[in-house]
Design a binder for these strands. Structure first.
Lengths: 203, 203
DNA sequence: CTCAAAAAAGAACGATCGTGCTATTTTGCA
DNA sequence: TGCAAAATAGCACGATCGTTCTTTTTTGAG
């Protein structure tokens, strides 16, 4: 890999860390340069504009998500095992040390949902892909007979993503140490073959 | 009400609107003054510092939530009726016109979860209160026999809050017109006495 | 109506930001 | 090792921000 690409990677890795703490829109060229041991103009030359830098940060975070969550899940056999692996890795990533401020993509979704532009477009595409992936694994599990035949796949994906967000919220803001466990319990309640309900009157 | 308090209210109402679109941390005294028809220093005198302004915006948004969601629910009879009223109003508020950029409190939770200070403290207190309120209504419903006796109340509250966040996400970012319906369906699946499993055919 | 007090405006400051331009250092091939 | 090209540093600019200080306008009680 060329020197340029190596430096760029190092910058982006640090930038994703910072973005998880202060948000993508509050990244500054100056502080990012300082953290990377570069000058402002030296760092700037890698991207050409702040928006291009922010876009690169989004893409780096998305690539990181695929690498840490999606790819490992796809090493598991298709069906409920793979689905559970995806969800577990997704949740556990919220507690990993590489993004101390939480998931930068979730935060970015709230930052840019009302600011049209390339960054928002990239976020939308990424989130749609995440949802599609989740629904595909749910469909696979249903096809394998490991999920009730009358399951509403889009609703299930919607609810599972809600569990991810709730875990993030409770962990990052409320400092709730049980948030990961709650998310995993919720998954089993929604998808598991165990007890079909915590809280339904008639099975 | 004194002139000062009236002007302050008008400023905050506009500020909450803006905060829903660009986030609390990116509010600027200048643009806020322009939107309120005041001068920079005139507006500034009402708060004394930018952080005090941001804190006032958080408190105004929280008061708005109580007024529009919690109070109306408490006009309903205790139990499942009140719980459902709370959840419905909570979801529907995401689609109301007074905060075009979505819920400013949810966005602020992601903005400030890694920035210690008075604003984060106020957000934490508010979110804890929201969760406690939700759990209290769930408990009431359970006591009334309208929720399974073995329901896990903290888990249910966790999942319901996830539905809110998922609805917000799908509406604001993915422009999913069915997001409100999905959240309400999710509520009925988790708490309702209707169909015990996820089955519902999408139109 | 008067006039002191309250509210708002105006102007200016230091700091910080993104960005463009030029000089300097570093890299990797001949 | 020499040297063009790539990578980085240095510097300055205009803009914008929060904040302070002073002046002007507006308010409302006596």
């Amino acid at each position: 890999m060329s020197k340029k690409a190596l430096t760029r990677e190092a910058i982006l890795q640090q930038a994703v860390r910072s973005a998880s703490q202060i948000g993508i829109s509050r990244l500054t060229i100056g502080s990012l340069a300082e953290q990377s041991g570069l000058s402002k103009s030296g760092l700037f030359a890698h991207f050409g504009s702040k928006e291009a830098l922010q876009l690169a940060v989004v893409e780096a975070a998305q690539a990181q998500f695929v690498e840490e969550v999606v790819k490992p899940a796809f090493t598991q056999p298709r069906g409920m095992v793979r689905l559970r692996a995806l969800f577990r890795a997704w949740v556990m990533r919220l507690y990993a040390g590489n993004t101390p401020g939480g998931c930068p993509l979730l935060a970015a979704a709230y930052e840019f949902d009302d600011q049209p532009g390339a960054i928002r477009d990239a976020l939308v595409a990424g989130q749609r892909w995440q949802r599609d992936t989740l629904q595909r694994l749910l469909q696979d599990a249903q096809d394998a007979g490991e999920l009730a035949a009358d399951s509403n796949i889009p609703l299930l994906a919607f609810m599972l993503f809600g569990l991810i967000q709730s875990a993030h919220h409770d962990h990052q803001l409320l400092d709730n140490h049980h948030s990961a466990q709650l998310a995993l319990q919720g998954f089993e309640q929604l998808c598991g073959t165990a007890a079909p309900h915590t809280g339904q009157v008639d099975p």
